[in-house]
Amino acid sequence: MRRRTVLGALTVGASAVAATGTAAALPIAVVNLDDMLFRLPSAAPAPIQVLARQTAAARRAFTAARYNDLASGLPGLLASAAATAAESTGQARQQANAILARAYVTASELAAKTHSDAAWVAADRALTTARASGLPIPVGEAVRVPAITMRRSGNCASAVRFLTTEAAALDPTTERTGAVRTTLLLTAAYSAAAGSDRASSLDPLGEADEIIERRPHTPNGLFTVEATKTMSALYRIGVHTTLGTPDEGVQIVQGLNISLLTTPERRARAWTDIARMWHALGNSEQAFTALRRVEEEAAQEVRRPALRALTTSLLYSPTRVTGLRDFAVRTGAVPA
């Protein structure tokens, strides 16, 4: 597959959305992944440098919440990276496997946005190819996605054990392995909260904060999420809400500077967690205000099934909130 084919697929759709202003009207489509993970399109091997640029472009599409653009171009990228890994040897094969693992990480995260079962397939392939690379950073990054699929299927305790075991294998004293270890601990904390295990959720948060305090200026460019104080605070909000103690998140929200999160997808996720917190506290107006901020950051985020369900729950709550019905119709939560 030629470089311009993949990059074009990742960028042309975004230009069209910008020109028409219809981003909020677009559903998130991952049909291509569901169909093609088991039968990727034909593609020729590509130079490692080209694959690295294509994977970076795919990740930018994800972090900018351009999910439809990403879905259209990702199968071709996966096919090209897989062909390269299969036909390479030595260091080139190691690098190709690391790139392929990161492409599958992105595929799994994209599928998870719509609770698609394709997330399982992509997550397994991400970890398998990451381990084949023999590189600790891609392995650590890939570990998150099968753990997330475990949690979503209700296997929270298994997810926590997997994440904490893999985190323990990463050196916390060096910048990049320490940063990846931190992200695994944060994910473990949220997974434990989803299983109603308060002790197992707060302990990883504490360890993550200790690593961040020792190295507060972690390197930018981690492939998954950044290991920062702001990110840790965001996870704490989600943990407390999930544990049924959303009031403990209110003070955290008051001190949270969401602008420090570097991507639209992460900022939208922050506002999503804040919306859930206020909804759990029974404050529909504040929850709706947070949902509108999600839409401002990333229009396709509010069309995710989980966000539409939250919008519907707010709409049919006893509190009547001005503008909520129009928002629900616009985002596809209810029919027009």
Rank of each mutant, 00 (worst) to 15 (best):
R152L: 12
P172L: 08
R151T: 14
G195C: 07
A167M: 06
A194L: 14
T164Q: 07
V180G: 01
T164I: 04
R215K: 14
R176N: 13
R152C: 07
I212R: 02
S153C: 05
I212L: 04
R198N: 03
A167K: 01
T164L: 09
A157S: 14
T165S: 15
F162C: 06
A167E: 02
D197V: 08
A193W: 02
G195A: 08
D197E: 10
S196N: 15
R181H: 05
A179D: 10
V160I: 10
D197M: 08
E210C: 03
S191N: 11
E175G: 14
G154C: 02
A208D: 05
L184V: 12
Y190P: 04
S191F: 09
R215D: 12
L184Q: 11
A194S: 14
L202S: 02
T174F: 12
I211G: 03
A169G: 12
G206A: 11
D197I: 07
D203I: 15
G154I: 05
L170V: 12
T165N: 15
A159S: 00
L186M: 01
A179K: 01
D209N: 06
A159M: 05
A179F: 09
G206R: 11
D197P: 00
R215N: 13
D171C: 00
I148W: 10
R214W: 06
P172Y: 06
S191A: 15
G195W: 00
A189P: 03
A179I: 09
V180C: 06
E213A: 15
R214T: 08
E175R: 14
C156V: 07
Y190M: 12
G178M: 03
N155E: 14
R198G: 04
T174M: 12
L202V: 10
